[in-house]
Write a protein that binds this DNA or RNA. Structure first.
Lengths: 203, 203
DNA sequence: ATAGGAGTATACCGATCGGTATAGTCTATT
DNA sequence: AATAGACTATACCGATCGGTATACTCCTAT
């Protein structure tokens, strides 16, 4: 009934993992939250680790789709979208459920080097940076990859900053910084000691 | 013998908390790592939570002192120090023990709103930003607070980025961005008005 | 009608969790 | 020599952890 039991379990787990932390969430609590039993849970997921990875992989997909949709709905030129990213960020962080970035949090909870959790988390930000880099390229950035990395640093920084202390204006400052960096990356500015290994084309 | 037993326990706990995560570290493991017993541990610390807070508070003090020392040793003008911050960051991140920021990680593990862990973590970055803001003011920034927040966003972003994926050049890009932001904040430029969503005139 | 699969209910497993009780060892001071 | 306090050793507590075994109730497809 209602919906796929597997999906119900995954949803319940996702909500608990994100709101309370992964290690702090037991499988009993997940089963109860999904209105089912551990037996069914283990029918669809080999182990808790398996469930954790399913959570992260789904979130990887869902969150990026949601985010891009939000950005696209706010602006329609590449440059405006690059800035709209920070407006979406701001709105997301104002949400009462906001509890930081699920991937950053997961990485903090599973620090072992080769961990799958770490890999999925890194993958998320790879994808995200690619999205930013594409936008950067479309608005004529001289170094889209660099700009994308810089902007994503601001974004990640704002997230963790807001996580530790709410409503401290992280998103606004991140946007202000982004404006400067974007302009600087687009406009032809010679100096400011930023060679960025740009061969030729200088003049 | 050797040194204060209390301090030995705290040291062992700190190392385990940072390298493996707080929730992943049991008190038995701490006692064993400190070459003592749980009984002694509970003589000096009321509870594990107490030990966690002691860890964070000590790290708050120690890390900032260490960081400022490192920066001071690298440069002696405010502006140069503002940039040296990112060199110290880079060296720290290259360390094999690097596992991200203890406070960001702790905040990820203890997400409940009023949690003491969250408060100590927020306090750390308040102090840190004050340090940056002082440097910013000394080099004639027009808005030291804004610049300090922006730079600290870059810094925190670089930390979590490096945590998820090592050696991806986060610190270098953070520094490049910092150079631009610092110059922009010092040089006499009207204001950081939005070039794109500019509603109209700007006196 | 009946067999099989989906899902439930519940009890259990060994291990570990944070934390405590009790008894004993050691050393320094008196 | 006696005492006291710091520290150890060890066993224990109830609770919870991730995970499993068994038996049950359904519903559906043949």
């Amino acid at each position: 009934m209602s919906l796929n039991l597997q999906e119900k379990i995954l949803r319940a787990a996702s909500e608990l993992f994100y709101s309370q932390g992964i290690r702090a969430t037991g499988v009993d609590a997940i089963a109860k939250a999904a209105n089912t039993t551990k037996m069914s849970l283990y029918k669809y997921f080999m182990s808790k680790d398996d469930l954790v990875l399913a959570f992260l992989r789904k979130r990887d997909e869902d969150f990026r789709v949601w985010f891009v949709d939000q950005v696209d709905g706010k602006a329609d030129t590449p440059k405006a979208r690059l800035l709209a990213v920070f407006d979406v960020l701001d709105e997301w962080m104002a949400t009462p459920e906001f509890r930081g970035c699920a991937f950053i949090n997961a990485a903090a909870e599973f620090p072992l080097a080769g961990n799958s959790v770490l890999q999925v988390s890194a993958g998320f930000y790879d994808h995200f940076r690619r999205y930013i880099a594409d936008l950067a390229e479309q608005c004529g950035s001289k170094s889209p990859e660099s700009l994308a990395l810089q902007l994503s640093l601001l974004l990640e920084g704002a997230i963790v900053s807001e996580q530790m202390k709410r409503h401290s204006g992280s998103a606004e400052q991140a946007k202000q910084a982004a404006i400067i960096l974007i302009e600087h990356s687009i406009i032809d500015i010679p100096d400011t000691s930023l060679p960025t290994s740009n061969p030729g084309e200088q003049q």
